[in-house]
Protein backbone atom coordinates (compact mmCIF):
# COMPACT_ATOMS: atom_id res chain seq x y z
CA UNK A 1 0.00 0.00 0.00
CA UNK A 2 1.44 3.39 -0.94
CA UNK A 3 1.13 6.37 1.39
CA UNK A 4 -0.87 9.35 0.19
CA UNK A 5 1.22 12.20 -1.15
CA UNK A 6 0.59 15.66 0.27
CA UNK A 7 -1.65 17.79 -1.91
CA UNK A 8 -0.17 20.23 -4.40
CA UNK A 9 3.38 20.78 -5.52
CA UNK A 10 4.43 23.26 -2.87
CA UNK A 11 8.16 23.80 -2.58
CA UNK A 12 9.21 23.16 1.02
CA UNK A 13 12.35 24.67 2.54
CA UNK A 14 14.21 21.90 4.35
CA UNK A 15 17.17 21.70 6.67
CA UNK A 16 18.89 18.35 7.19
CA UNK A 17 20.95 17.65 10.33
CA UNK A 18 23.42 14.75 10.29
CA UNK A 19 24.63 13.37 13.63
CA UNK A 20 26.22 10.06 12.63
CA UNK A 21 29.43 9.06 10.93
CA UNK A 22 29.74 7.06 7.72
CA UNK A 23 30.68 3.41 8.44
CA UNK A 24 29.34 3.69 12.01
CA UNK A 25 25.68 4.13 11.27
CA UNK A 26 23.35 3.86 8.31
CA UNK A 27 21.99 7.28 9.29
CA UNK A 28 24.85 9.08 7.51
CA UNK A 29 23.77 7.43 4.27
CA UNK A 30 20.04 7.91 4.96
CA UNK A 31 20.63 11.65 5.33
CA UNK A 32 22.29 11.75 1.94
CA UNK A 33 19.51 9.74 0.29
CA UNK A 34 16.86 11.92 1.88
CA UNK A 35 18.57 15.13 0.73
CA UNK A 36 19.01 13.83 -2.83
CA UNK A 37 15.34 12.76 -2.95
CA UNK A 38 14.14 16.11 -1.60
CA UNK A 39 16.10 17.95 -4.29
CA UNK A 40 14.83 15.56 -6.94
CA UNK A 41 11.26 16.32 -5.82
CA UNK A 42 11.96 20.02 -6.38
CA UNK A 43 12.17 21.09 -2.74
CA UNK A 44 14.66 23.63 -1.47
CA UNK A 45 17.41 22.38 0.82
CA UNK A 46 18.27 25.47 2.81
CA UNK A 47 21.19 23.95 4.68
CA UNK A 48 22.78 20.62 5.58
CA UNK A 49 24.34 20.76 9.03
CA UNK A 50 26.88 18.10 10.05
CA UNK A 51 27.12 17.81 13.80
CA UNK A 52 29.06 15.59 16.26
CA UNK A 53 30.24 12.42 14.42
CA UNK A 54 28.35 13.61 11.34
CA UNK A 55 31.33 15.82 10.48
CA UNK A 56 33.27 12.74 9.32
CA UNK A 57 31.31 13.06 6.07
CA UNK A 58 33.42 16.16 5.35
CA UNK A 59 36.82 14.48 5.70
CA UNK A 60 38.63 14.76 2.35
CA UNK A 61 41.08 12.04 3.42
CA UNK A 62 38.37 9.39 3.73
CA UNK A 63 39.45 6.73 1.23
CA UNK A 64 37.00 3.85 0.82
CA UNK A 65 37.82 1.00 -1.59
CA UNK A 66 37.13 2.01 -5.19
CA UNK A 67 34.25 -0.42 -5.58
CA UNK A 68 32.42 0.93 -2.53
CA UNK A 69 30.05 3.89 -2.30
CA UNK A 70 31.99 7.05 -1.41
CA UNK A 71 29.76 9.18 0.80
CA UNK A 72 32.15 12.14 0.96
CA UNK A 73 32.32 12.33 -2.83
CA UNK A 74 28.57 11.81 -3.14
CA UNK A 75 27.89 14.75 -0.81
CA UNK A 76 30.42 16.87 -2.70
CA UNK A 77 28.68 16.14 -6.01
CA UNK A 78 25.29 17.04 -4.53
CA UNK A 79 26.69 20.21 -2.94
CA UNK A 80 28.24 21.29 -6.22
CA UNK A 81 25.27 20.42 -8.39
CA UNK A 82 22.71 22.19 -6.19
CA UNK A 83 24.99 24.82 -4.64
CA UNK A 84 24.06 23.51 -1.20
CA UNK A 85 25.05 25.24 1.99
CA UNK A 86 26.87 22.37 3.74
CA UNK A 87 28.15 23.28 7.18
CA UNK A 88 30.32 21.12 9.41
CA UNK A 89 30.14 22.21 13.03
CA UNK A 90 33.54 23.75 13.69
CA UNK A 91 33.98 22.52 17.26
CA UNK A 92 32.83 18.98 16.36
CA UNK A 93 35.18 18.99 13.36
CA UNK A 94 38.31 20.30 15.11
CA UNK A 95 38.00 17.69 17.87
CA UNK A 96 37.73 14.97 15.25
CA UNK A 97 40.72 16.16 13.22
CA UNK A 98 38.84 17.83 10.39
CA UNK A 99 40.36 21.25 9.69
CA UNK A 100 40.23 23.77 6.90
CA UNK A 101 43.36 25.69 5.89
CA UNK A 102 42.57 28.57 8.24
CA UNK A 103 42.14 26.37 11.32
CA UNK A 104 45.21 24.30 10.38
CA UNK A 105 47.22 27.51 10.27
CA UNK A 106 45.73 28.83 13.50
CA UNK A 107 46.50 25.63 15.43
CA UNK A 108 49.82 25.03 13.67
CA UNK A 109 48.80 21.69 12.21
CA UNK A 110 50.66 20.22 9.26
CA UNK A 111 47.67 19.76 6.97
CA UNK A 112 44.08 20.69 6.27
CA UNK A 113 41.54 18.07 5.22
CA UNK A 114 38.09 19.64 5.05
CA UNK A 115 36.54 18.33 1.83
CA UNK A 116 35.87 20.95 -0.83
CA UNK A 117 32.30 22.21 -0.77
CA UNK A 118 31.94 21.99 3.01
CA UNK A 119 32.32 25.00 5.28
CA UNK A 120 33.28 25.03 8.98
CA UNK A 121 30.97 27.20 11.04
CA UNK A 122 29.25 27.45 14.39
CA UNK A 123 26.07 26.17 15.95
CA UNK A 124 24.41 29.50 15.21
CA UNK A 125 24.08 28.26 11.64
CA UNK A 126 21.83 25.44 12.88
CA UNK A 127 19.71 27.83 14.95
CA UNK A 128 19.42 30.17 11.97
CA UNK A 129 18.52 27.29 9.65
CA UNK A 130 15.86 26.03 12.07
CA UNK A 131 14.27 29.47 12.17
CA UNK A 132 14.31 30.03 8.43
CA UNK A 133 13.27 26.53 7.25
CA UNK A 134 9.79 25.02 6.97
CA UNK A 135 11.04 21.63 8.18
CA UNK A 136 14.13 20.33 10.00
CA UNK A 137 14.94 16.62 9.79
CA UNK A 138 17.61 14.93 11.91
CA UNK A 139 19.43 11.73 11.09
CA UNK A 140 21.19 9.51 13.59
CA UNK A 141 20.57 11.71 16.59
Amino acid sequence: MQANQPPGNTVVKLTVVVHSAPYSSQAAYSAYRFTASALEAGHEVHRVFFYYDGVHASNALSTPPQDEFDLVKAWQALIEQHELDAISCVSSALKRGILDAREAHRYEKQAANLAEGFVLSGLGQLVDASLSSDRVVSFGA
Partner: peptide, 23 residues
Amino acid sequence: LFTVDYAGFVALVCAYARSVSWS
Protein backbone atom coordinates in the same frame (compact mmCIF):
# COMPACT_ATOMS: atom_id res chain seq x y z
CA LEU B 1 1.46 -0.26 7.65
CA PHE B 2 2.03 1.95 4.61
CA THR B 3 5.16 1.34 2.54
CA VAL B 4 7.08 4.40 1.33
CA ASP B 5 10.18 4.94 -0.80
CA TYR B 6 12.57 7.89 -0.28
CA ALA B 7 10.28 10.18 -2.30
CA GLY B 8 7.48 9.14 0.06
CA PHE B 9 9.74 9.82 3.06
CA VAL B 10 10.29 13.37 1.76
CA ALA B 11 6.55 13.77 1.18
CA LEU B 12 5.81 12.68 4.76
CA VAL B 13 8.28 15.16 6.22
CA CYS B 14 6.56 17.89 4.19
CA ALA B 15 3.04 16.72 5.06
CA TYR B 16 3.48 16.79 8.84
CA ALA B 17 4.15 20.06 10.63
CA ARG B 18 7.40 18.79 12.14
CA SER B 19 9.46 15.64 12.58
CA VAL B 20 11.13 14.10 15.61
CA SER B 21 13.92 11.57 15.17
CA TRP B 22 13.84 9.31 18.21
CA SER B 23 16.85 7.36 19.42
